[in-house]
Amino acid sequence: MQYRTIADTAVSAIGLGAMPLSIENRPDEARAVATVHAALDAGVTFVDTADSYHWHAGEAGHNELLIARALARYGGDTSDVLIATKGGRGRPGDGSWTVDADPGHLKRAAEASAKRLGVEAIGLYQLHKPDPAVPWTESVGALRDLLDAGTIRAAGISNVTTGQIRQAHQILGDGLVSVQNRYSPAVRDSEPELRLCTRLGLAFLPWSPLGGISRSSLDGPSRPTSAGTAFQRIAAVRGVSPQQIALAWLLSRSPAVIPVPGASRPASVRDAARAAELQLSSGELAQFEDVVGVEEHRNENRR
C-alpha cells in the first residue's frame, strides 16, 4: 500500500467509504464487518463515515457504531487507522437528506459521534455540507470551538466552493486539514477546489470517486467503466479492473488526492486497494482526456 498524508498523519492512498454498509440495500452485519476487515487486511488505514449514514429513522450513527464494532473485532493492530466522520446532515427515514449546520447542533453531534466511535477525540471531523440557513463563518466557528475543546483533533469541510475553503482556512488555520467534494473521472466540477487544496496543503478526499457508475445520469460514453473507454481498454491490457484504472487516474491528479470509494463487499475493497500500486504512464494518462465527461452540476441530493 502506498501512503499519503492528511496534515501530519500518514494514511493509505486509498480509503474506505463506509456509507454503503449502512444505507439503503445495506449488507447484513457479518458481510459489513468482513468488508471493513478486508480493507484493513489490504492496508487501508483511512475510513470515512458520518452520523447520517443510516437508512431508517431513529438509527442515527448506525455507520459509526458499525465501524467501531468492526475495529473492535479485528484481530490485528488498528492504532494507525484514521476514522473521519462528518456532522451537519440528517436522514428522517423517508430517503431524503436534511442539512443542519447550526453551531450548537454541530457541537452536540460531534460529542455524540465521539461516544459512538469510542474515542476521546475524533481524529478528523468534517462539516458535511454548508447550511444555507446558517452563516458559513458560524458553522466553521463551531469547528474551531471543537478543536479548542479537544473534542476533535483535526477539521475538514465537505461539498464546498473555493471561497468557502478560503474562509474556513482563515478561521481554522492549521486545524483545517481536508476537503471532501464529489470528484471523479466523470464529475470534475471541483477542479478549482482540488487546485486550491493542493496549493494550501489540504488533503482532497473525492467522494463517489468512480463517478457514481450505478447512477443513470452517468450512463453512456462518459461512464469511466463503460466498454470502449480508455479506462476499459487500459484495464484489459493491464489485466486489472476499470475501477482500479479510474482510481489510479484520480491519484495522478495531485498528491493531495485520497479517494474514498464506497464498498459493501470484501472483494470490492481488495480490488480498490490495489489501485494504490498502479502507476499510469504519460501515454495512458493522455488517453483519458478524450473520453472523460464533465457533469456541470454537483448532485445536491446525496451526501
Rank of each mutant, 00 (worst) to 15 (best):
N63F: 09
R223W: 00
R303T: 10
M1N: 07
D271F: 09
R233H: 09
A10C: 01
G211S: 06
R238K: 14
R166Q: 04
V187S: 03
L176I: 01
T162K: 01
V294M: 12
I245G: 04
S113F: 10
P92T: 05
A256D: 08
L285C: 11
P266Y: 12
V36Q: 08
I171H: 06
E24F: 14
S113A: 15
Q244F: 07
A60L: 09
V179M: 08
Q2A: 12
A10M: 05
L124R: 02
P221W: 09
N181I: 10
S12E: 00
A121E: 12
E59P: 06
E59V: 13
L146C: 10
R270L: 09
P224G: 09
S22W: 11
E138N: 07
R303G: 04
S139D: 00
G201R: 05
A155E: 04
P255A: 07
S184N: 06
H169Q: 12
S282A: 15
A256Y: 08
H54D: 13
T98L: 09
S241T: 15
V11R: 00
V119Y: 10
V294D: 13
E295N: 01
S52L: 03
D100F: 07
A133H: 13
P266H: 11
D145V: 08
G262L: 09
L117I: 04
L218V: 12
E295H: 03
Q2G: 09
P206A: 01
T45E: 03
G141R: 02
S79L: 08
L127I: 04
A101D: 03
D219A: 13
I157C: 06
A110M: 05
L117C: 08
A112Y: 00
V160I: 13
T78P: 03
M1Q: 12
V81S: 08
Q244S: 03
R199A: 14
P224N: 05
I83N: 04
P135M: 06
P103G: 11
I152Y: 01
S184F: 03
A72V: 05
W207A: 04
A267L: 12
W136F: 15
A149K: 05
Q170P: 00
N63I: 07
A276R: 02
Q244C: 10
S268E: 15
D102L: 03
R270A: 15
L202S: 11
N299E: 07
S252I: 00
R91Y: 03
E295F: 00
A248W: 02
V237I: 14
L65H: 06
A236E: 15
T9I: 13
T98N: 06
D77S: 10
D77V: 09
A286K: 02
G163N: 05
L280C: 06
A246V: 06
A230H: 01
R274N: 06
